[in-house]
Nucleic acid binder design. Structure first.
Lengths: 337, 337
DNA sequence: GTGAAAGCGCTAACAA
DNA sequence: TTGTTAGCGCTTTCAC
């Protein structure tokens, strides 16, 4: 069996409580005794049983990261940021994937009320029309920090990028490069993030005296093959758009696939800009103009806020809102001529 | 405070043990009582405290996934596979990143002896020259399943792809398409996986009466910028290779970056094939010929083996070895003419 | 400065 | 079929 405090106590002819205190470097214990305890513990490779401490203490040493998916450059980079902070703090990161499924998200969040995790970082799934489960979690007193995909009406800490501005910039970039009929590829599910981007997109049109027709906004399905078909149909219209904004990475790469399949030339026939964190955007055919989010920083920031709340309870998470701007990288896919 | 068994017992005028048994659907308890307990528990939203059960039971309900990094299509897809199985089994997935750093890997593995996780899935880091820490973990009796990047000499379960064959195929593919001087981009750190691929690569050369000079094999640094410089130097040699095999994804995309920077044309000046799980390989400029590993399946398989071991202890993990073949997708980057 | 003992929430003998 | 009790490993009063 593994080494316990009891074993150390016996070996050293001390009481369990003395060893416990010594290990936590309590001032009640003499230097001498502490030294003996530390040395013996090190020799035996003693590791405290996390469950015993959690049962008493109340803190599990775990945080949850709830994501729609992980095979996406934004999320995998964000995990990196989160993990870097968590490792510093000695916390453990439990990853949960919702696959954009509301039911799964609900049952995952519900399980957090068991105390397995001390706090939650989350990017809501696209299927989340209903956010009672998130509200319940907050009301249960479990610290929650949203990042990227937030649930707007819930009073919790939020780390986002400047979505409205980015949508505006994306549209303006295309307009300045000569586009007149720009399609916006959103995602099904009424996400705040894509809504904000769409609002910015529309505002840019207004400011440049262009109108946005309803059929220029496409709500892409979660399923890849369906999205492909939707985009295909879009590009086969007789009034085919001359520009496209992809509101999330998955959708943007699909535009490329469809263009390749239909032999629609980028940027000549159609210009493409996408929200994406792909490190290889510049290597695509043609190089993809991107709005790139500070994924690593956002992960780090969200984790930092969460730990601040975990350490001293006084912080009011409801008021925390952090906006970290994205960057537009112009590349071949939106070149003017 | 949260709902406990004791609370349920009091409400229902039962003993805690009765409630405990009822909740586990024990046959000792009457249908009637079970029904009352279930209903009341549901009404109160009772969730068992995972620490209390773990303290007793011995099983934590957590598994660890130890990875060099997460921003890599192979690993992020593998996590998907792992998570899908874990969610089925009601297990929680704790992710640990080593960043290819031996020390970090050591301290992470050491922490597992505390019992926080019931089992470990791992892909070893490139810096792992020394594997005592892994051996120690196994000897501590914690079930371990390697996937993809295995430590060959350690007697633990392994899920790999056919690395030797894939290396062979990669080289042969280039040779058949006219390459005479093929470089192999390995990774620093003596990984079994890249070694196997290299051996296959060499064997293909022998079989086609070609020799492999030492300077055709490059051991790329962990640091991106250094790798870039190494590849740059390679492509600036007067006897520049006419083909390149990238043994891991990170290295392969770097070849593209360097070619773009140096205006070396693919496939005309140099043909490129890479081990990669990038879903957008076909969209690169030019479309990248890949050896694609069954990442999702490998993750799933590794998790399945681990859970088999966790459920019935009789399985001998040391003997488990599963080989799932990769697929070569020929694309533009290796086209003959 | 050190030790004895209670108890965190749950499970599993053993009793009734 | 149900209840009593001990104990998992640790922390935390409270005595000594």
């Amino acid at each position: 069996m593994s080494i316990t405090i009891k074993k150390i106590a016996e070996d050293l002819q001390l009481a369990v409580s003395t060893v416990s205190k010594a290990l936590r470097d309590s001032h009640e214990i003499s230097i001498e005794t502490k030294k003996r305890v530390f040395e013996h513990a090190a020799k035996l490779n003693y590791l405290p049983n996390p469950y015993a401490s959690s049962l008493k203490g109340k803190s599990s040493g775990n945080i949850a990261v709830v994501l729609p998916e992980v095979a996406d450059s934004f999320f995998s980079t964000a995990i990196n940021g989160i993990e870097s902070i968590a490792q510093d703090k000695g916390y453990h990161v439990i990853v949960y994937l919702t696959h954009e499924d509301l039911q799964r998200e609900q049952s995952i969040l519900k399980s957090f009320r068991s105390g397995r995790v001390d706090g939650v970082l989350m990017s809501v799934s696209g299927g989340t029309e209903n956010d009672d489960h998130i509200r319940d979690l907050c009301e249960a007193g479990i610290p929650l920090v949203f990042f990227d995909r937030v649930s707007e009406n819930i009073p919790a800490a939020k780390v986002v990028t400047n979505d409205f501005d980015s949508g505006y910039q994306a549209a303006e970039h295309l307009i300045k490069n000569g586009c007149k009929r720009i399609a916006f590829l959103s995602m099904a599910g009424n996400l705040a993030i894509t809504n904000q981007r769409l609002l910015g997109f529309k505002k840019a049109h207004v400011d440049h005296n262009l109108s946005v027709k309803n059929n220029q906004v496409i709500y892409c399905a979660q399923q890849e093959s369906q999205t492909f078909d939707q985009i295909k149909k879009l590009l086969q219209r007789k009034d085919r758009p001359d520009g496209v904004v992809g509101s999330v990475e998955k959708v943007t790469t699909q535009v490329y696939s469809v263009c390749h399949a239909l032999k629609v030339r980028i940027p000549r026939d159609i210009k493409v800009i996408g929200f994406s964190n792909l490190p290889i955007a510049a290597l695509l055919n043609p190089a993809l103009t991107t709005i790139t989010q500070p994924a690593f920083e956002m992960g780090k920031a969200a984790a930092t806020i969460l730990f601040k709340a975990l350490e001293r309870k006084k912080i009011d998470l409801r008021k925390e809102l952090m906006v970290i701007p994205s960057t537009l990288y112009p590349r071949e896919s939106t070149r003017k001529k």
